[in-house]
């Protein structure tokens, strides 16, 4: 699954034009890959819940950030612009 998602991302990198759907697919891919590694390789799926939540949250926030930056670049630029 992880390898399939990686090869899918490579295909997107080589061929797809930027769009909301493509960005959504990339964001979901990041989240799913992260959760798989955290739950199965790191074995956090039945570990102390604070540890699991912290790591899984990372792979919720990052995909959401990817989407927000795609959807609202100007708004975010205005928000973080120190000269305004």
């Amino acid at each position: 699954m992880l390898i399939t998602l990686t090869l899918g991302s490579a295909l997107i990198a080589e061929s797809a034009e930027p769009s909301l759907i493509i960005t959504l697919v990339i964001a979901i891919t990041v989240g799913v890959k992260g959760w798989l590694v955290v739950d199965y390789f790191m074995e956090l799926r039945n570990a102390h819940r604070y540890f699991r939540i912290a790591m899984n949250l990372y792979f919720v926030v990052l995909p959401v950030m990817i989407l927000l930056v795609y959807l609202f670049p100007e708004g975010i630029a205005n928000l973080v612009d120190l000269e305004r």
Partner: peptide, 20 residues
């Protein structure tokens, strides 16, 4: 766990720099 963390970080870096 430390090694898996290194893998996790690359899982984010790859799409940010090469795909997105």
């Amino acid at each position: 766990c430390y090694w898996h963390m290194i893998d996790l970080v690359w899982i984010i870096i790859f799409p940010l720099l090469y795909v997105l």
